[in-house]
């Protein structure tokens, strides 16, 4: 069967484009990420989240007579609780779509990654669903943080700094 269309053009049986060429074409049509707009939104939302954290910390310091070091842990716990509640209400993901790293980088993002995974996998039960999947997204943060801390600790030990910082 002659491989010709009605207009008489010879048709090849495949696209005459290779990967490199195609990536260029695809890039042309790929809408660029609005980096500047996203950074501005991230700045303001991130700043606000930290402001809220600051307010909570000051409240603990004033109300329960804590030092800033003592207030750090309860502050983090409260931020996590707020993030979990917002995740449960189904609004966290909508805020995050707008705010990007503004909600992702603070500890709220960490809590959301665990809570959303726990909620989603409840369908598979508490042990194999919630238990096994809770750290699906947050696991890498913990793993890399711990490994980094370990390496740094070993380096410090080698260099004989003991426990004091540089």
């Amino acid at each position: 069967m002659a491989e010709q269309s009605a207009t008489g053009k010879k048709k090849t049986s495949s696209l005459s484009m290779d990967e490199k060429e195609y990536k260029k074409v695809a890039k042309k049509y790929e809408p660029p990420r609005p980096i500047l707009k996203n950074c501005i939104k991230a700045f303001f939302v991130g700043g606000t989240v930290c402001l809220i954290g600051q307010a909570i910390q000051e409240a603990f310091m004033a109300g329960l007579d804590m030092t800033s070091k003592e207030a750090a842990s309860p502050t983090v716990a409260v931020m996590i609780l707020i993030s979990v509640i917002l995740t449960c209400l189904g609004v966290y993901d909508k805020i995050a779509q707008w705010a990007g790293a503004g909600t992702g980088v603070p500890v709220t993002g960490f809590a959301n990654s665990m809570c959303s995974a726990a909620l989603e996998h409840r369908a598979e039960g508490l042990v194999l669903g919630v238990g096994a999947n809770m750290f699906k997204l947050a696991g890498s943060v913990i793993v890399f943080g711990v490994v980094a801390a370990f390496i740094i600790g070993i380096v410090y030990a080698f260099l004989g700094f003991g426990g004091g910082h540089l």
């Binding site: 700045f43 991130g46 503004g102 980088v105 890498s140 943060v141 943080g145």
Partner: peptide
């Protein structure tokens, strides 16, 4: 706080890292 978040946003949008890679 805002600036640290901006660094995160640049990692996600500029370096095209996933959120997990960015946070790590």
């Amino acid at each position: 706080g805002g600036l640290i978040c901006v660094i995160g946003q640049l990692l996600m949008d500029g370096a095209k890292l996933t959120p997990a890679h960015t946070m790590s």
